Simulated scan of single mutants.
Amino acid sequence: MPNRMILGLALVALFDAPQGFAMSDTRVAQICDAAAQRAAQSEGVPLDIMRAITRVETGHALDGTLYPWPWTINVEGKGFWFPSESEAKSYLFNIFKAGKRSFDVGCFQINYRWHGKAFRSIDAMFDPDENATYAARFLKELHAELGSWSAAAGAYHSRTPELANAYIGRFQTILARLDTQTPTEFAARDPFTAVANPLIPLQTPADHGVMGSLVPVTGAATAFIQFN
């Protein structure tokens, strides 16, 4: 993925659905939030952190509100939102048969190349609850290592500081836009603007730097939604 983004352009990509984007079922759009709530409770991760991450990863505007979308795939930096689970899985299995291994799936865009071994199957990896639970455990580990949820969010996306910091900016913006009907208790002790420790590069190949957010990190907005 390219090296830099302008936050304002990224927000345009997040909040303005491109022409032809016809998915309008809010029940489907709520699947990721429901999975996020269950994972947050079971793994001890603040719910708003989970809600913000899934929106950064898969969010699109629906009736003026930003929702995550469960049937989302990112293949080597190109994002795809599908109207249904069956269409998403059909596309995913086809690209897998064609030899693709670097792709991100589901509510929290878990990368198959780097995290696929933690799941029983690709089908299980796409399951909203399994996807969210793995994301929550990963975020909790990163929080324990780095000392703040902002730093954990950045490292969730990348261990490259420039990419992580750009992601943190998007994360904080979306976090601030979440409804405040159930305020989280951790805000006072964990300021979102503070990154506790430098992001330490992983001892893995360079392309581990990106987990696969659908938000482009280029200096110009690009078309990144395609349908079969």
Score class of each variant (00 low, 15 high):
residue 139 L to P: 01
residue 151 A to H: 00
residue 82 F to N: 05
residue 85 E to A: 05
residue 123 D to A: 13
residue 129 D to P: 01
residue 103 F to V: 08
residue 143 H to G: 04
residue 91 Y to A: 14
residue 77 G to M: 07
residue 87 E to F: 05
residue 64 G to Q: 09
residue 61 A to Y: 06
residue 134 Y to A: 02
residue 100 K to L: 08
residue 133 T to S: 12
residue 113 R to H: 13
residue 62 L to K: 09
residue 122 I to K: 14
residue 147 G to C: 05
residue 119 F to T: 14
residue 81 W to V: 09
residue 102 S to H: 12
residue 99 G to Q: 08
residue 86 S to D: 10
residue 111 N to M: 13
residue 59 G to R: 05
residue 68 P to Y: 05
residue 96 F to A: 14
residue 81 W to D: 07
residue 155 A to W: 03
residue 112 Y to M: 11
residue 123 D to H: 15
residue 94 N to E: 04
residue 88 A to Y: 12
residue 96 F to T: 07
residue 129 D to W: 03
residue 125 M to W: 07
residue 68 P to D: 09
residue 127 D to L: 07
residue 131 N to A: 08
residue 148 S to G: 11
residue 99 G to P: 02
residue 56 V to R: 04
residue 95 I to P: 02
residue 98 A to V: 03
residue 129 D to H: 13
residue 108 F to T: 04
residue 77 G to W: 06
residue 147 G to N: 02
residue 142 L to G: 01
residue 77 G to C: 08
residue 115 H to A: 10
residue 72 T to E: 07
residue 62 L to I: 10
residue 136 A to D: 04
residue 102 S to K: 08
residue 147 G to W: 01
residue 117 K to W: 03
residue 92 L to V: 11
residue 108 F to N: 05
residue 98 A to C: 03
residue 121 S to H: 04
residue 91 Y to K: 11
residue 143 H to Q: 13
residue 93 F to Q: 09
residue 97 K to I: 07
residue 115 H to Q: 07
residue 102 S to A: 11
residue 131 N to Y: 08
residue 58 T to N: 05
residue 62 L to A: 11
residue 138 F to N: 12
residue 77 G to K: 07
residue 116 G to M: 15
residue 157 H to T: 01
residue 109 Q to R: 14
residue 155 A to S: 13
